[in-house]
């Protein structure tokens, strides 16, 4: 996938912001929807391969 390019600037860090190792978890993702992906095309096959060999994206890259 191409990288998403965002030309709007990130906000300045608010005064007094703190987080452990500069990271702060806040909330959670909404419930996902189960849907059927189409078993077609090269990118699906890569997905299926990762799935079957229980590999992550970066393991797959190597």
């Amino acid at each position: 996938m191409a990288t998403v390019q965002i030309s709007l600037p990130l906000p300045v860090l608010p005064e007094g912001w703190s987080g452990e190792k500069d990271f702060k978890p806040v909330g959670q993702l909404s419930q996902a929807t189960d849907r059927n992906i189409e078993p077609v095309g090269p990118h699906f096959l890569a997905h299926a391969r990762r799935q079957r060999h229980k590999r992550t994206f970066s393991e797959d890259d190597r």
Binding site: V4, I6, S7, L8, P9, L10, P11, V12, L13, W17
Partner: peptide, 12 residues
């Protein structure tokens, strides 16, 4: 890849 404020510095 995201742009930052003109002066750089600390961002959120």
């Amino acid at each position: 890849i995201i742009a930052t404020p003109r002066e750089g510095g600390d961002v959120l």
